[in-house]
């Protein structure tokens, strides 16, 4: 809660502008647990106060400031809305890199499972088999259900390096979901 109060303090970060902490901007406690409707309401409440349309009859300079705040509000909402992005923000702002591109230091077993799923997705695509896709999706979801509590507790304990490990695995699974959706769209078109 103390974070939320500092939003109102003038002169922070040198000049004016909304600052870059999404939790503070939206007036929400820092952390993973966040009910979607609480976030949605905080976002809409913030936009209702800062959106440039609210200042359509004001001067250019004033509208520019409103636009900065509205832009920051959108960015903050985007960062916090998806749990995986929210976790990414928390881990990175603790100074731990996620090395999305190059870090493949993952358990061999996990990587093997990944390859297997990918092969299944490719097969399902070749055979236009939606049932097989749903089967793989189900398996991925079970893996995610196991990993999420782990990520949340690592973050709560501020064990950032281990949180980053779990995060990378969840990110792999998310990419697989995307691939499956792509295949599904391709099958429909």
């Amino acid at each position: 809660m103390s974070d939320a109060l500092t939003v109102g303090a003038p002169g922070r970060s040198g000049g004016h502008g909304p600052g870059s902490d999404p939790f503070a901007l939206l007036g929400l406690p820092r952390g993973m647990s966040m009910a979607p409707h609480v976030l949605d309401e905080a976002y809409r409440g913030l936009q209702a106060r800062v959106h440039p349309d609210r200042y359509a009859d004001k001067t250019d300079a004033e509208r520019r400031v409103a636009m900065q705040w509205a832009t920051a509000a959108n960015e903050a909402y985007r960062t916090l809305r998806k749990p995986l992005l929210r976790a990414k923000y928390l881990i990175e702002s603790a100074g731990v890199g996620l090395g999305e591109q190059d870090n493949t230091a993952m358990p061999a077993e996990f990587l093997m499972q990944q390859m297997e799923w990918r092969e299944h997705v490719a097969e399902a695509r070749a055979h236009r088999d939606d049932k097989a896709l749903r089967h793989i999706e189900h398996a991925i979801r079970s893996a995610e259900v196991e990993l999420w509590p782990l990520l949340e507790s690592r973050i709560a304990e501020a064990d950032w390096p281990h949180a980053a490990d779990v995060w990378r695995r969840l990110r792999f699974l998310e990419k697989l979901h995307d691939d499956i959706e792509d295949v599904r769209s391709a099958l429909l078109d």
């Binding site: 939320a4 939003v7 003038p10 004016h16 106060r49 001067t59 300079a61 400031v65």
Partner: peptide, 23 residues
């Protein structure tokens, strides 16, 4: 321009500070 921007910023900040206290 700068003065107008500062006034606007201050007014948004005070509106948001009000929000935090309310909540």
């Amino acid at each position: 321009d700068e003065f107008a921007a500062r006034r606007m910023d201050a007014s948004i900040r005070s509106a948001l500070a009000g929000r935090s206290i309310e909540s």
